[in-house]
Design a protein around this nucleic acid. Structure first.
Lengths: 204, 204
DNA sequence: TATCATATACTACACCGTGTAGTATAGTAT
DNA sequence: ATACTATACTACACGGTGTAGTATATGATA
């Protein structure tokens, strides 16, 4: 009767509440009572859908990890110029990982990595590793065409990703509120791409 | 009587034990009883040195953050070549942040960042920010000498750091045990420096 | 079609065992 | 006298369970 949103299944309500609270406060600090309350559901109902707290947490986090990767286009556009293709890729990557939700997933996965080791692998494979594979494939292609000259394209892919992500994802992760404008980020991105392409271009 | 090491002050014993346990298990999971036991000290003694758990945790983490930065040389060696100076800097940086202890500090600061927001700032300022400042100063110098051409040296410093650190610090953070050898890391570092210097060198 | 029976999903709430922050106290060593 | 230990204790929160009772849907029966 008191459903805030109409016709949402109990399970969905629980998942949604658990997502919110776990991402906000992590595993230990979030209580099952709090989840039940937040979900407008009795505690018993929570336990009728999820065996225990660990199972609930694992299910929630795994699904969030899976949702991260799937929006990645699985190749770089071969019709664009090198710089444009990289820029598009970087923009996409930053866009995905820039959201507060993704930042929280990152943080929680890292934080609970000792208690839930398989979670780290799940996140890694569906996030950074996936992005690396996609970019490395593109770089390898460009190498074989003689456009680029790179010794180890897989490592180079990681280096590119680090270069693009580190400067603004790290401060955000630590709660440093930089006063960077979108224009700043745009220029930082252009600079990264400039350095990377100039630094890897095959010498003619 | 049962002191493992001779003549260690009680306070030191407590600090050492708390360091170990907090880094291993984070804030919530570590109990004050466990700290007292690990320190070979009674619980009351812990409370005679530290007002409560939060204070103890804050003090421990702050001192660990401070200890991170201070081992950084505060300039890049101007007598070395560009590549050698950068390589030295990178090696030093990787060496500092590669230790298991530093990885754990990183992880815990991130994990407890919501409950202890000022901790993030402390860590940032004494770690990444400091490294950035040092590198940016060097880059600026090289720009003014006409060796390098970079639009924004501060951003470039962060990009260089991200490039060097991301490929091996991220997997490690997520518990991905790559089978990288020291030789692999050496080659990755060389490649990063090659890309960065080629990508930022002033066109003659 | 109206009424009743049954099954199922859920709630509200008390309850248990356990773990933990923090305190109080009595005793011991120097 | 001081610094510390050992230990018992308080107060409370949490994970998880058991239970009595309600709401709702479905289907059979008359």
């Amino acid at each position: 009767m008191n459903d805030t949103s109409p016709r949402r299944s109990k399970c969905d309500q629980i998942v949604e509440a658990a997502c919110k609270l776990f991402l906000e406060s992590g595993y230990e600090t979030t209580s099952m009572d709090a989840i039940a309350t937040e979900a407008n559901v009795s505690k018993r109902t929570v336990y009728s859908y999820f065996e225990n707290k660990e199972v609930l947490f694992g299910a929630i986090m795994k699904s969030m990890c899976d949702n991260t990767g799937c929006t990645h286009p699985d190749t770089l556009d071969p019709n664009l110029s090198l710089k444009e293709a990289l820029k598009e890729f970087a923009r996409n990557m930053v866009g995905l990982t820039q959201t507060p939700e993704q930042r929280d997933v990152f943080r929680v996965v890292l934080a609970e990595g000792i208690k839930f080791p398989e979670l780290g692998k799940t996140f890694w494979d569906s996030g950074p590793e996936l992005a690396k594979q996609i970019l490395a494939a593109y770089l390898t292609e460009q190498i074989s065409r003689g456009v680029l000259a790179i010794e180890d394209p897989e490592v180079a892919a990681m280096q590119f990703i680090g270069m693009v992500k580190w400067p603004h994802s790290m401060p955000e992760l630590f709660g440093i509120k930089g006063n960077t404008t979108p224009a700043d980020r745009q220029r930082a991105l252009d600079q990264a791409i400039s350095i990377f392409t100039e630094g890897t271009r095959a010498k003619s």
